[in-house]
């Protein structure tokens, strides 16, 4: 799809109102719902391993994680998950092609040094890639820049500019252009509103305005 023609319709219906079986963060739950049972998953930036543990318990997934913080890795390994201390910029190159069914990068893309190289690696390692990130095109971000002339501080971008770990922020449109350059196509996309709920958008223009976060399921173009 071209980034200038609307978003593909979300192919799956919104997750049904199933009772929550664990306290998984809403955006992670949406990612988990994209993942097929019994698959192999690499979660980059897996934090305390909440997604991996959920996937292992609920979907019998074979999971691996990479996490930068020692506290995060310790927490993961201590709960029996297979996680290495490492970083998306330097520790992806060793994995073989198609080593995983899914490579997941949740809320991490904007914090890496070279997002384009990381995304390229993800698309190589995973048959499919799931990426979520805060949308810098969100209307409140634009408003703060436009009216106050200040760097935005929002729920998903809570840090001040001088202390934020987010060094490569992008909009949904920027991201899709990058995917295009990397020969990666969107299989599914989810736009999340301020409360982390899924919302629908008629066009890319609209999605880029109302989406505070976005989640994309990507695959290499054949």
């Amino acid at each position: 799809m071209s980034p200038d023609q609307g978003l593909p319709a979300t192919s799956a219906p919104a997750p049904e109102n199933l009772p929550e079986r664990s306290q998984l963060r809403a955006d992670l739950k949406l990612i988990a719902d994209m993942i097929e049972k019994g698959s192999r998953v690499l979660d980059i930036g897996c934090e305390d391993g909440a997604l991996l543990e959920y996937l292992f318990r609920e979907k019998q997934v074979t999971g691996r994680g990479i996490e930068l913080s020692q506290a995060g890795v310790n927490a993961c390994v201590a709960r029996g998950l297979s996680v290495i201390q490492g970083n998306a910029d330097t520790d992806l190159g060793n994995y073989p092609d198609d080593a995983f069914d899914y490579a997941v990068l949740s809320q991490t893309l904007q914090a890496v040094h070279a997002p384009h190289l990381v995304l390229e690696q993800l698309a190589r390692i995973g048959r499919k890639t799931i990426v979520s990130f805060p949308n810098f095109g969100y209307w409140k971000v634009r408003r703060r820049l436009l009216l106050q002339g200040r760097m935005p501080v929002t729920r998903v971008l809570p840090a001040q500019w001088y202390e934020t770990p987010n060094i490569h922020l992008c909009t949904i449109r920027d991201f899709l252009l990058l995917c295009e350059d990397l020969n990666v196509e969107v299989e599914r996309s989810l736009i999340l509103d301020e409360r982390g709920r899924m919302t629908t958008a008629r066009s890319l223009w609209w999605a880029n305005l109302i989406g505070q976060q976005a989640i994309f399921l990507l695959r290499r173009k054949s």
Binding site: C76, V77, G86
Partner: peptide, 21 residues
């Protein structure tokens, strides 16, 4: 130690790695 981790990653082995302070 990390070199071992990278070698294990290269064969997509099941590996955990922690550096303890």
């Amino acid at each position: 130690n990390r070199d071992i981790v990278h070698a294990l990653n290269a064969v997509a082995a099941d590996v955990s790695f922690v550096e303890i302070e």
